[in-house]
Amino acid sequence: MADTTLDVREIPPADRHPKIHDAFAELERGETLTLINDHEPKPLFYEMQAEVDEFDADGYAVDHRGENEYVATFPKK
């Protein structure tokens, strides 16, 4: 299994969620999308929780590593 890392800090905000959803859809079961963002992706968490059955919300984690750097993991069931 290979995990995927996506740094969205340089992507325009309006384009981020579609790109993230596409990357998540490409994952195999049991893999994880690691997202590097400039803010805590709580709205994305709620969106994924409500709309994506394969998202393992219990395995979600976020780490605030510094100014403008949040690293979140989005596991796929």
Rank of each mutant, 00 (worst) to 15 (best):
M1D: 02
M1N: 01
M1L: 08
A2F: 00
D3M: 07
T5A: 11
T5S: 13
L6H: 02
L6E: 00
L6I: 02
D7C: 08
D7N: 14
D7H: 11
D7L: 11
V8K: 02
I11Y: 09
I11T: 15
P12R: 02
P12N: 03
P12C: 08
P13E: 04
P13C: 00
P13L: 06
A14P: 08
A14S: 14
R16M: 12
P18I: 05
P18L: 03
P18D: 01
P18T: 01
K19F: 00
K19G: 06
K19E: 14
I20Q: 04
I20S: 03
I20E: 07
H21F: 15
H21G: 14
A23N: 02
F24S: 11
F24P: 09
F24R: 09
F24G: 11
A25V: 03
E26R: 11
L27I: 12
L27P: 11
L27K: 08
L27E: 09
E28I: 01
E28Y: 00
E28N: 10
R29S: 11
R29Y: 03
E31Q: 15
E31M: 09
E31H: 04
T32H: 08
L35P: 06
L35A: 11
L35D: 04
N37E: 09
N37K: 11
N37D: 14
D38R: 01
H39V: 13
K42H: 11
K42M: 12
P43E: 06
P43Y: 08
L44G: 02
F45T: 09
F45Y: 15
Y46H: 09
Y46L: 12
Y46S: 00
E47Y: 09
M48P: 06
M48Q: 05
Q49V: 10
Q49N: 08
A50G: 12
A50H: 11
A50K: 12
E51P: 00
E51H: 04
E51A: 05
E51T: 13
V52G: 03
V52A: 06
V52N: 04
D53T: 15
D53S: 14
D53W: 04
D53A: 14
E54Y: 01
F55T: 13
F55S: 12
F55Q: 13
D56C: 00
D56E: 02
D56G: 00
D58N: 15
D58Q: 15
D58G: 14
G59Q: 12
Y60D: 05
V62M: 14
V62W: 10
V62F: 11
H64M: 10
R65M: 12
R65K: 15
G66T: 08
G66E: 03
G66D: 06
E67Y: 10
E67N: 12
E67H: 13
N68I: 01
N68Y: 02
N68S: 09
E69L: 13
E69W: 01
Y70Q: 08
V71S: 04
A72K: 01
A72M: 07
T73L: 00
T73I: 04
T73E: 07
T73S: 10
F74E: 02
F74K: 03
F74Q: 01
P75A: 10
K77R: 15
K77M: 12
